[in-house]
């Protein structure tokens, strides 16, 4: 998968990493059992402090998305794919409805966020 961060975006970098894993899982780019890159490697490639990456991995572990195992690194937990297909089809319907209503992508995302934080 592709990992991207923008240090100037205002969002904490570790959260940018966390949300990308969530998105990759939702899109099926990451599958249960798959290993995430080692924290050191990801930190090196993105020119980050390793603690930033470790922070993101700990957050993902607390979210129940990955397991951190000694010697095996960060592994995507089985079962996290549950219900995702349903979310994707519903989301496609939502996107179509938003387009029909003439909503901008920004407005559609804002509405979705609002709904989820309710």
């Amino acid at each position: 998968m592709i990992w991207r961060i923008d240090p100037t975006s205002g969002a904490p970098v570790y959260l940018q990493l966390v949300s990308q894993v969530h998105v990759a899982l939702a899109r099926g780019d990451l599958t249960p059992g798959e290993r995430l890159p080692s924290a050191r490697e990801l930190a090196e490639s993105l020119e980050l402090n390793m603690h930033t990456v470790l922070h993101a991995y700990q957050q993902l572990r607390d979210d129940g998305v990955i397991e951190l195992r000694r010697g095996r690194g960060a592994v995507v937990v089985a079962g996290t794919a549950h219900g995702r297909d349903h979310v994707r089809t519903t989301l496609a319907a939502y996107a179509a409805a938003a387009r029909d209503a003439g909503l901008s992508p920004e407005a559609a995302v804002a509405l979705l966020k609002e709904e989820m934080l309710r």
Partner: peptide
């Protein structure tokens, strides 16, 4: 890949 000037990216694949 569309990438903002301040954005960093890595692609990893086994």
């Amino acid at each position: 890949t569309p990438l903002a000037p301040s954005e960093r990216a890595v692609w990893l694949r086994r």
